[in-house]
Amino acid sequence: MHRCTGRLLVFLAGAGFVLHPTVRAAEGASLPEHPAFDMHGGGSKPGSWAGGMQAGFPWQAVHLQYGLEDGWTPFVEVSSALLQRNEPSIGLALRWVDRPRVRVTGEVLLGWQVQTGVLAHSGPSMALRVRAAAWVGRRIMPYTAWTTRHTLLIDRTALETASGTETSLTAGPRWDALGVVGVAFVLSPRVGLELGVEYPRTDGSTVTLPGVHLGLQFGGRP
């Protein structure tokens, strides 16, 4: 089986697992529905929305999500590393575990990865993300999130011969991953603050430096 096809099948299987209704959260008591918790634990209750901005080194990001029925939460997100690697995405989240003190959410993202500079590349991108958060007090929530991103780099070759030009496409995969560990704080009923540390893994880069960011979350019901 071609390597790209195999990876695509694995990704689709992962996406299906993430979004399958049988792994949805059970009914009952759950983490407080605060934007900070919704952003880092994942998902929003129907009719609620949450947004967040983060700034740091090297990542900056903006995220907006809106809760629908049956636990689905679509969102849009743009993240950027030093304004050189930019990843706009749309996504869909589903809470898997929603307990009084623990929330686990799976997300699927579709978008693009555009990197500028001497190592420029660009291509469609798909990612799977798992978020987990725990409530340890009235205002504090440690969290973690782990993302695996798969980008397809499609090259076009134009071969000019004496009889005309032939065009062909070749595709190559690129894999990146990002782990984040942090803690969020409730500042007010609609605003939260968080501090996180990032652990990137990038295709072709033998060494990666950890990052750090500060974030603001906000939200509520319309």
Binding site: H2, R3, C4, W112, H121, S122, G123, P124, L153, I154, D155, R156, T157, A158, L159, E160, S168, L169, T170, A171, G172, P173
Partner: peptide
């Protein structure tokens, strides 16, 4: 550049991408 196998089946993506989404164009 990419090291993938030549994949003519991806030509279906051309109308969608307009190849504006191509990583790079190699002119030979």
């Amino acid at each position: 550049g990419s090291t993938g196998v030549r994949a003519r089946q991806w030509l279906w993506a051309l109308p969608l991408l307009g190849c504006s989404g191509c990583n790079q164009t190699i002119e030979i």
